[in-house]
C-alpha cells in the first residue's frame, strides 16, 4: 500500500518519530491559531455577543455589521478612504522592492567579493541591529528634514531601503545557496558582475528573497507614518484605522473588523510567496 503522502521521501525515518512530529506540530499549530480564530470570530459578532458571560468562543449569529459600520466610518473620513489604502500600498511596494534589490546587491558583494572594508561593513550592520530605534528617532527626523523629505513618501521609503535586516538575511542566503564554482564559471564565460547578480545569484536565492519580501512588506504595511507625515492625504492606512478604533468601547466590534482587514493583505502576500518558495524547491530539489 502506498504510504500517506505527508512526508518528504527521505531515508532513515522511524514511524514513531514521524508520529511524534505530527503531534507536536499539530499542538503548536492549534496554540498558534486558536486565539486568532477567536479574534476573527469576534469581528463577526453582534455587539450583544461580544460582552456575554460566560464568553462564547464561536460567533452564534454572524453579522457583517462591524464591517458595515467600519465602511460607514471610512466614508466619513477627511480624505477618501481609498487614498489611505493607496498611500500604504505605495509605501509597502516601493519600500519592499527597493529594499530587496539594494540589500541583495550589497549582500552579494559582501558575501562573494573580498575587498577592503567588507568585513567591517557587515559587522557594523549587525551591530546596528542592537541599537534601540527609539532614540534614533530624533536624529533621523533632523536628517530627513535637512534633506527636505518631511511629509513625503520618501521619508518612509528611503530609510526602509537600507534596513539592516535584509542585508544580514540576504548575505546568509547567498553564502549558503550560491556555489562559488558557479560564479567562477560565469566569470570565465565573460559575464559581468551585474549580469551574474541578476542571472545567477537572484534566481538561485529565490527562497531567500521571497522570504525577505514577506518580512519587509509586513513591517511596511503596519507603518503609521509617525513623525514624518503630516498631510492628511499622505497618511497611511494603519494611521487611519487607529483613528477609527480610537472611538472607545462602542467600537470594539469595529476594532476587531479593522484587525481582520489589516491582516488580510500580509497573509495574502505570505501565501503567494510561500507557495512560490515551494515551487522553486519542487523544480530543483525533489526528484
Amino acid at each position: 500500500m502506498k504510504k500517506l503522502q505527508i512526508w518528504n521521501s527521505k531515508p532513515s525515518r522511524s514511524f514513531g518519530g514521524d508520529l511524534a512530529i505530527l503531534v507536536f506540530l499539530s499542538a503548536g499549530a492549534l496554540f498558534s491559531i486558536l486565539p486568532l480564530v477567536y479574534a476573527v470570530s469576534n469581528a463577526f459578532k453582534p455587539l450583544n455577543e461580544l460582552f456575554l458571560f460566560p464568553p462564547v468562543f464561536f460567533v452564534r449569529n454572524p453579522t457583517m455589521n462591524n464591517f458595515y459600520d467600519l465602511f460607514v466610518l471610512m466614508s466619513s473620513s477627511w480624505v477618501p478612504f481609498s487614498r489611505y489604502v493607496m498611500n500604504t500600498l505605495v509605501i509597502s511596494i516601493a519600500g519592499t522592492a527597493g529594499h530587496v534589490v539594494l540589500a541583495s546587491l550589497a549582500a552579494y558583494a559582501l558575501a562573494k567579493h573580498d575587498f577592503p572594508g567588507s568585513k567591517a561593513m557587515f559587522g557594523v550592520v549587525i551591530l546596528s541591529l542592537m541599537f534601540a530605534r527609539e532614540v534614533t528617532n530624533i536624529p533621523n527626523y533632523l536628517i530627513v528634514s535637512r534633506l527636505g523629505w518631511v511629509d513625503t513618501y520618501w521619508a518612509i521609503i528611503l530609510p526602509a531601503w537600507a534596513m539592516s535586516l535584509g542585508l544580514f538575511l540576504m548575505k546568509q542566503f547567498i553564502e549558503a545557496m550560491i556555489d562559488n564554482a558557479l560564479l567562477e564559471a560565469a566569470r570565465i564565460e565573460g559575464a559581468s558582475e551585474w549580469k551574474i547578480f541578476w542571472r545567477i545569484v537572484m534566481p538561485n536565492v529565490k527562497p531567500g528573497w521571497l522570504t525577505l519580501v514577506i518580512l519587509a512588506f509586513q513591517s511596511l504595511w503596519s507603518e503609521t507614518g509617525g513623525q514624518f507625515i503630516y498631510s492628511e492625504q499622505l497618511k497611511t492606512l494603519p494611521y487611519a484605522l487607529n483613528q477609527i478604533i480610537g472611538g472607545g468601547i462602542a467600537r470594539a466590534g469595529v476594532g476587531a473588523a479593522v484587525g481582520v482587514i489589516m491582516m488580510i493583505v500580509p497573509i495574502t502576500v505570505f501565501v503567494i510567496n510561500q507557495s512560490k518558495v515551494i515551487d522553486t524547491m519542487g523544480a530543483s530539489g525533489i526528484k
Binding site: A106, A109, S128, L158, P159, W161, A162, L167
Partner: peptide, 14 residues
C-alpha cells in the same frame, strides 16, 4: 554594488 545601500544606511542608521 554596496554604494546605494551603504549611503542610505550611513544616512539613516549610522
Amino acid at each position: 554594488f554596496i554604494a546605494p545601500y551603504g549611503i542610505l544606511f550611513l544616512l539613516f542608521t549610522i
